[in-house]
Design a protein around this nucleic acid. Structure first.
Lengths: 400, 400
DNA sequence: GGTTTTATTTTCATCGAGCAATCAAATCTA
DNA sequence: TAGATTTGATTGCTCGATGAAAATAAAACC
């Protein structure tokens, strides 16, 4: 509690710059509520630390001396957001400014044993990130399982059992030259949609991932809720059916196929449930699904009072035509029902959210104020078209 | 961002004192990480503001000069925690130090119209708080309904419909000489149990209130979650039964009676469901209840990953003998199931929690650091015996 | 009564912020 | 083209607040 006023101003100026990038000293002084003199001195320090730099002045339309624009140094580094799925692994390399630089979608070699899987993953990350003339500063990894915070243990990952326990993460950390944070894939997907997707401008939001399994995530005030034992959002465990059947047996791709089999109906894919003119027996099955979906939607709604619930995962695309009806149904169950939206980043919500998280960890390490992190990165736009375009980009672009 | 270092030290010293009450200057300096010289000056300022005061020195067992103990001034004020229930209204007057001073339990005159109800409530609060030689600084009011934050509107209060809308709160505020905060009764009940009851030492906790209605509340990191529209915790809305029947129709006192009536069973009270040797038809009804209870317990568990789930409300006492079995059942549904506990403050969880909230608002207004509030008040013990003893105390005790 | 120990206050050097003057670099105007 | 004007950035200066250390205070010990 000593002379931290200087440190405090450093943080304030840096944070303001991250929020209003790029900005002149004058603008920083106004926005941060600090005198111009102090900003000059603080900026000098930050430049000395090789953190920020003066950039091109904008062609001014005003009279008077042109403001010198400042920005985070472009060669500070890059981050990697990784979504390690049971079948596909998706990676988004992000520039320190927040821009996605490269995107990859690979088949996860799920049959490999643990050391080989770690080798493969570390190799892929290093390979993709080495094409840029800036160091890799942070990796964020989404996994199809829960993370127990105190011991950094991954549990409950039936679709990729090798990674359960603590060894996978520990070994991956040894194989990578920078910090690695890890979280549940749904949590990162929600973070991605919060920043660039369907839940932008909804600080309170939830995500329901309807795929082969059921995942969900909750966010309040722009912050994704994360319990210490990774239990948050596991609504699939709700014992709602007769005999304690779980919700995940009703509203997942796997569950639908199983229910169909039990009922003696031949379904090729879970999406067949949503054909426009279903046979009566399929309609019954579908009604069962929809009942479960309503439970799931209600559950996430009363958990964090979201403005928006984002639906993602393979099944979500199949039920898109029914969305308006579901919205109405939910309104019947719930006063003040949240808005239902499909994920706009498609299968890349998770990887993009991981990139966002990695960036936030970077900014925090650089000294940004923690309370501003949920609003960072700012001034960047990411959408599916941009990601698609980057899939084919060779990572040979020198940054800066 | 100017010379706020002084203000910052003031907050730090005050917060440390609240956390380590009472404390000497030396102790404050060590605990807050501030130099002794600065603490001396800051304490001088706080004494000048009539906020803190020197108290009796402790009889020292050490050599050397005795440390002068400092404490919040006892005559700073009192707060009122009010739990306005549909049938009973409970009030706990709390000293600024956190000690409960007076406790009342009154029948709510639920048949009064709005102005008369407000008059009655304001009168009761003023009457009870006027017996102490210290001003009433803050009132916290728990209501059997939801609070929509932006407009301060109470909604969803079927058992006390007069208070719905914005007028009740607005008029009550006009009738009381100090700030009034309002929240859902379950939220305050959880806050009470978090501080003094079954969830003490569980920063992540949830509460399930099983009474005539179903209420619940969630807390993470010692902070009760509160959505902007008061939807958090309304798990009663879960449409889990056939034909969209809601969870609240299964696990509430009212629901049980209705189900029994539908089944043609005569029940005098919901508690009859839990007799030790039930008739087969009652056992079936009970099983239905327990299925609903499991859904509710699972739902709160996966919403905030609690270490403890507190059961409160009239029904919770009836099912106490079955608690161990429910704990086991829950463990079967859920890996890492939370601990189930009965509320230890009985019917006063809500009023005590409201008192806690009122105190926290006081401390915040005095300048305590927001991040310390979830740990305040400290060093006070409240239990049902103490509350019971205070029910009969006449409020004529001059404070200080 | 002197010594030792511990708490608090005072003294004093230093640090860092803001104000205001100054410098810098534009556009505007005759 | 040479001021005048406007706006941004820097610098000199003062002042307030902190912390280290010295001084003082108040106890126990011997």
């Amino acid at each position: 509690m000593v002379q931290d006023t200087r440190e405090l101003n450093r943080s304030a100026v840096l944070t303001t710059l991250l929020l209003e990038r790029p900005a002149s000293r004058k603008k920083l002084a106004t926005a941060a509520g600090i005198s111009a003199a102090t900003v000059t001195r603080t900026v000098e320090q930050l430049i000395g630390e090789d953190l920020i730099t003066e950039t091109q002045e904008i062609v001014s339309e005003q009279r008077g001396r042109r403001a010198v624009q400042l920005d985070l140094r472009a060669d500070l580094g890059i981050v990697a957001g990784v979504d390690l799925g049971a079948s596909k692994t998706r990676i988004v390399i992000g520039h320190i400014h927040g821009t996605p630089l490269a995107v990859r979608e690979l088949a996860t070699p799920g049959t490999l044993d643990l050391p080989a899987l770690i080798d493969w993953l570390a190799g892929v990350i290093l390979d993709l990130s080495s094409g840029f003339a800036a160091p890799l500063r942070q990796v964020a990894l989404g996994v199809p399982g829960s993370l127990e915070i105190p011991e950094q243990r991954i549990s409950h990952a039936p679709n990729l059992p090798q990674i359960e326990g603590t060894e996978f993460l520990a070994a991956l950390r040894r194989s990578l030259p920078c910090p690695v944070v890890c979280d549940n894939d749904a949590n990162f997907a929600l973070l991605g949609e919060l920043h660039f997707g369907a839940a932008a401008h909804s600080p309170n939001a939830a995500l329901l991932s309807l795929g082969f399994g059921l995942g969900s995530a909750l966010a309040m005030d722009g912050r994704v809720l994360r319990g210490t034992r990774g239990l948050v959002g596991e609504f699939g465990q709700l014992p709602i059916g007769p005999m304690g059947a779980r919700l995940e047996h009703l509203v997942t791709g796997g569950g639908i196929l199983r229910q169909a089999e039990l009922a003696g109906i031949a379904l090729e894919s879970p999406a067949d449930l949503f054909v426009s003119d279903p046979a009566p027996r399929i309609a019954a099955l579908r009604q069962q699904f929809e009942q479960g979906l309503m439970v799931a939607l209600t559950a996430v709604s009363v958990s964090c009072d979201p403005d928006t619930v984002v639906l993602s995962g393979g099944l979500s695309r199949a039920l898109a035509p029914e969305l308006a009806r579901y919205q109405e149904l939910l309104g019947g169950h719930l006063r003040l029902a949240p808005r239902l939206e499909l994920a706009t980043l498609d299968d890349f919500s998770g990887a993009v959210g991981a990139m966002v998280s990695a960036l936030q960890h970077c900014y925090r390490d650089l000294g940004a104020l923690p309370e501003a992190l949920p609003r960072l990165p700012r001034g960047v736009h990411v959408d599916r078209a941009r990601l698609a375009a980057l899939k084919s980009v060779e990572p040979v672009v020198p940054v800066g």
